[in-house]
Design a protein around this nucleic acid. Structure first.
Lengths: 324, 324
DNA sequence: CTGAAAGCGCTTACAG
DNA sequence: CTGAAAGCGCTTACAG
């Protein structure tokens, strides 16, 4: 059996509390005894059992990161910084790919209740009863759960507006919108609103395909868009995966990018997915968002007050899918 | 305060043990009492505190996944299946990006000792004293730690041999090798060995750049290769990131792929990184490897015997970076 | 089948 | 400054 604090105390000839004090906060302890404890720790090769202290202190020092899938560039990038930031606060990150299964999302709530994690970051699509979420330390991205759950988002409306205007300025007359409709209230909806407003302002025909898309379903949606609006000359798409699917569909139809169709994506340029081409896109500051989300979550876990909504500006990245 | 099992027992008018039995293994319990307990659980909205049962049972049901960085397609894909498989066994995955910092790697060992996790999957590069790893449930990918640590790998030698022969068959006369030299004993070294053997067999000049590469350092290595061997007409590179860097360097030099230089990568086709081109590559069965690693780790955690070495066959994927 | 009790390995008031 | 004790919330032999 691994030695316990009890063994250390006995070996050092002191009380349990003294060992604990030496090991932890460094509360004032007689230097002599401190030395003895340290010697005992070394002699016995003692490592404290964190399960015990966690139970005692009622904190797990774990947080859950819930993403739809981790093997997607945006979420992988996000996870990278989430882990890095959480580590700074002494938290470990439990990774959960919801795979958009509602049970797996709901399971996170249970994990908080069961004290497996202290809180969670939600990057998801499904709905939950808000009552369930009450007093669960959760911070989300984009998604609006209600007053209880703070979230981090980007300037979805302004960025989309700018992107659409850019396409128009580059000569696009028939601009389309392909989005992934969120199943819950989400700031992502602002993108479609901006597009719609812009079309109404300029009198452009609305060419919208905005569906509930499961990961892997992007290709079918892109196909559908082409079936509905074959003569489109500019398109705004929501994200890297959709952009990729759209470009594939365009290629199959012999459409050249950007000569025949120009494309702007919400996110995706950072992937540098292609050694010769980069998406023109609205880039979200992933690192900042990830670090902020963790800072907020840690505060929430400690019962501190946090902002209800934090918005970061995006950056417009000129790539190769629009005309120069 | 959240209700405890004690509150449930009192409410149901039974003993603590009975509540525990009802909640867990379903050991035989009087149906009447069972019903009462269940009612009490519902009435009090009771959720068992897993910290307590973990301490009692001395199992965390957590495993650590150590990768160099999660925001890299191979590791993200690997992590996806690791999480999925671990979940089947009732384990949560703690994600750690080592960032190739040796301390962060060593920290995993500590986490096992501290009983924060039951075991770990290592996909890493640094060396550790083997004594440290003794009786730590760890399974690794590619890397050879010694008899204590089992690992999963691929047919590195045979696959590389085949790739080099393919390049030769497609007309390459000056074939190079760009690798990331592992800092530890690793099956990855078999790739260079296969290349070297093949050159000696065919009398080809050895054109090798095999360095310790930190993530982000691939570009400099690709540049170096071109400086040393500008007239290369075929190259084998270790992995997606190196392939990307090499292709970028080639483009900067006005070299056409595959007309001027053909390229085969160890892994990377799965990324489908480009809507129009795919890497010719040796693909590792990531899903199978991930699931196998978890199966082995779970067995190891339970003290069962596991294979010391498991090799999976790779698949040669014909893409666009070699001639048809 | 079941209740009372011991114990998992810590931390933290408490009294000294 | 420090030791003995209580307790975190469970599980599991144990005796009945």
């Amino acid at each position: 059996m691994a030695p316990t604090i009890k063994d250390v105390a006995k070996y050092a000839g002191v009380g349990l509390g003294t060992v604990s004090r030496v090991l932890n906060n460094g509360a004032s302890v007689n230097p002599e005894k401190r030395k003895k404890v340290l010697e005992a720790v070394k002699a016995l090769n003692f490592t404290p059992n964190r399960m015990a202290s966690k139970l005692r202190k009622n904190e797990t020092r774990n947080i859950a990161l819930l993403v739809p899938v981790i093997n997607h560039p945006f979420f992988a990038e996000f996870a990278y910084f989430v882990e890095d930031e959480a580590d700074k606060f002494g938290y470990s990150v439990i990774l959960v790919s919801s795979q958009q299964r509602v049970e797996k999302e709901a399971d996170i709530i249970k994990r908080i209740r069961r004290r497996e994690v202290d809180g969670a970051v939600f990057v998801t699509h499904f709905a939950h009863k808000e009552s369930e979420l009450k007093d669960c330390p959760i911070v989300s991205i984009d998604r609006i759960f209600g007053d209880e759950i703070p979230y981090v988002t980007t300037d979805n409306y302004a960025a989309t507006e700018k992107a659409i205007e850019y396409l128009a300025a580059k000569g696009c007359k028939k601009i389309g919108y392909i989005g992934s409709k969120p199943l819950v209230r989400s700031e992502v909806s602002e993108r479609e609103r901006a597009y719609t407003d812009e079309m109404e302002k300029t009198g452009g025909e609305k060419r919208i395909v905005n569906e509930v898309i499961m990961h892997g379903g992007e290709q079918a949606v892109a196909e559908k868009f082409f079936d509905l609006y074959p003569d489109t000359d500019g398109v705004f798409v929501s994200g890297y995966t959709m952009a990729k699917s759209f470009l594939t569909a365009a290629r199959e139809r012999g459409k050249k990018i950007p000569e025949d169709i120009q494309l702007i994506s919400y996110d995706g340029a950072f992937v540098q997915w292609n050694y010769s081409e980069v998406l023109t896109s609205v880039e979200q500051p992933i690192e900042k968002m990830a670090r902020k989300v963790i800072d907020m979550l840690v505060k929430k876990i400690h019962g501190e007050e946090v902002e209800k909504r934090v918005e970061f500006p995006t950056e417009f990245v000129l790539g190769d899918t629009t005309l120069k």
